[in-house]
Design a binder for these strands. Structure first.
Lengths: 231, 231
DNA sequence: AGGATGCTTCGAAAACGCTCGAAGTATCAA
DNA sequence: TTGATACTTCGAGCGTTTTCGAAGCATCCT
């Protein structure tokens, strides 16, 4: 298959409303069953099954069989970044005020995972706090931990040395939050920080959604360790 | 229109072979006429016209009327990054050996523009030289100029201060070259460097293609200023 | 074993979107 | 003004894709 045909195939897969729902629904990094994805997209199980098979064959998804369930997840960070970049175009820049204000949306806006890192108000707050304290520098195209930021992560027990393939510096990626329209911390560093928060019990998934809530313990540690002031 | 519908619409626009050809054809950053794009995609002018109108209305393209020609270009760097990220998924990682070896392809591989910066062997060589000399640090997610790199750019007359919105550091973005499968310099810094090379007459577009050739003068300056050794 | 649940395969109907010929508008050239 | 070029609009044909009911496997539970 020619290069252009592959390109069109991949884009077309993301270009169906049902499949688009599933892909964006998987953007929190979790693995969902075929049934959950069908419900999420508002289509029958048969239709979803066919879609999922095609996306898996094309390399967009990975599937893991577990009993009578089949768990589907995004195949790689590259796929997540593709979806993110399409969202960037699809989200109208005008105003940036998404008027949807349900109770569920509120939880999502407060904090959620964005594939492998933290987003929403939580993600933005952490990024802001790190930048404010001089631990992080975030530009439009890229970001990096400063020396103090590196030693901070070191103290927290996040092994920044193994993340980075280069010698000294830690380079990471900003990700424009589509509810806050502000950059937060993505890339390898963002993923490591997110994992750390889960491991230490600072944050917890809200059952059945992609939202995360900060535990009381987490609230204290985020404030003391990272200087994050949550409202 | 719901957020998901917008997402699907954008992706579907990129998901048609004809439109995909046009979009990737515009990835060199030039503005092409409707006729050129029709020829490039192998479709009639009528069909192309309809495609171009849809993509323009959706915010993917910008059109500029000039006499009886209509010049189309990608609407923004964000669109270019979306296309780039789709290519990332579409390009099979296996081997990375694209066997096409025409004379035109050779020129393209030697050097070309990638939206607003330099790619191909030329782009990779420049990035390698800068990294090798300690002027640049490139990670998987991000990159930055070092202090010596900043003063180098300063000496060249590239105004790094106005590029960066932060105080001291210059953060940029790596872009995985899809012919070399190696990162080169993109983002604001990459764009500024590319412009500088054009302005100084170091490189020149090969008529009618997206390839760029290095002028004798450019060859000398690239070697002397940046330490780039072109084969 | 028997029944329920989760998912896939099959097949056919319906809808959607791509495509191009023909005709229309705008610009340039002489 | 006349003709040529560049592009767009209109309309109809036609292939692709989506969709879901029905049936078929696979797995779990009791």
């Amino acid at each position: 298959m020619s290069n252009n045909a592959r390109f069109a195939e991949i884009a077309a897969l993301a270009g169906d409303p049902g499949r688009a729902s599933m892909l964006t629904g998987l953007m929190d990094g979790r693995a969902l069953t075929a049934g959950e994805l069908a419900h999420l997209a508002g289509i029958t199980a048969q239709t979803a099954s066919s879609h999922l098979m095609r996306m898996t064959e094309a390399g967009l998804l990975q599937v893991e069989k577990q009993g009578r369930h089949r768990y589907h997840r995004l195949a790689s960070p590259a796929v997540a970044q593709m979806i993110e970049s399409i969202m960037q175009i699809a989200t109208p820049v005008t105003g940036g005020k998404t008027v949807r204000t349900g109770p569920r949306d509120a939880a999502l806006r407060a904090g959620r995972t964005c594939y492998d890192h933290l987003a929403g108000k939580l993600g933005v707050s952490i990024a802001d706090a790190l930048v404010g304290a001089g631990h992080l520098e975030l530009g439009r195209d890229a970001g990096e931990l400063t020396d103090t930021g590196m030693s901070l992560f070191d103290r927290l027990g996040i092994d920044v040395g193994s993340i980075n393939q280069k010698k000294g510096r830690i380079l990471c990626r900003p990700c424009l939050d589509w509810s806050e329209r502000r950059p937060h911390l993505a890339g390898a560093i963002g993923a490591a920080l997110c994992n750390h928060c889960f491991d230490k019990g600072w944050i917890r998934r809200v059952e059945g959604t992609r939202a995360v809530s900060v535990t009381p313990n987490g609230q204290r540690h985020l404030r003391e360790s990272l200087g994050v002031d949550l409202i």
